[in-house]
């Protein structure tokens, strides 16, 4: 069958044109995004989980967070590493205190368990890190010291000697 191509162009190969994307505006956006993300980069690497019902107070402190057990306290609930260990709605009529109403039993039990688990890991692994005794306290700003005192006393009793009060920066 005769070709429809002109005899003049028969020898020439059809060139595939390279497409060049215009990336200037995309690069602008990415640079801005990069600057923003670098500014909000979390230097400490610690991820703090704030459960619903807790409003953290503001502070002028600039100390970076440390790794440790997270104890979250709201007016109704206590969590240890996001696990509910006491909820006033479920255990309203149960006595949770001992030692002259200063020690919170469920909190103490959970913390001792965490400490023992940490010790077991340290013994089992050759490069195991020693138990630091650091506890990150994420507490609601409306809590009264009478209640905070009980939490702190329980932590001390369970062997946690370094309290870190997690606060929100007052600067944006």
């Amino acid at each position: 069958m005769p070709s429809k191509k002109s005899i003049r162009n028969r020898g020439m190969k059809t060139k595939v044109k390279t497409i060049h994307l215009e990336m200037t505006s995309l690069l602008d956006i990415i640079t801005i995004l990069l600057a923003f993300l670098l500014q909000s980069y979390n230097n400490s690497g610690v991820i703090i989980d704030v459960p619903k019902g807790i409003e953290i107070p503001k502070s002028s402190s600039k100390e970076l967070n440390n790794f440790g057990v997270q104890v979250q306290v709201s007016p109704t609930t206590i969590w240890v590493d996001q696990k509910v260990i006491y909820d006033i709605n479920n255990t309203a009529n149960v006595n949770i205190y001992d030692q002259d109403r200063l020690r919170i039993i469920p909190l103490y039990n959970e913390l001792v368990q965490k400490k023992m688990y940490s010790e077991q890991i340290r013994k089992a692994t050759p490069a195991g890190v020693e138990f630091s005794g650091v506890v990150n306290l994420i507490m609601d700003k409306s809590l009264k010291f009478n209640y905070i005192k009980k939490v702190l006393h329980t932590l001390a009793e369970a062997g946690y000697k370094k309290y870190k009060f997690v606060v929100m920066s007052d600067q944006y």
Partner: peptide, 11 residues
């Protein structure tokens, strides 16, 4: 996006 810090305290 919410900047959090800590206040250290010892027993």
């Amino acid at each position: 996006f919410i900047k959090m810090f800590e206040i250290s305290n010892d027993v």
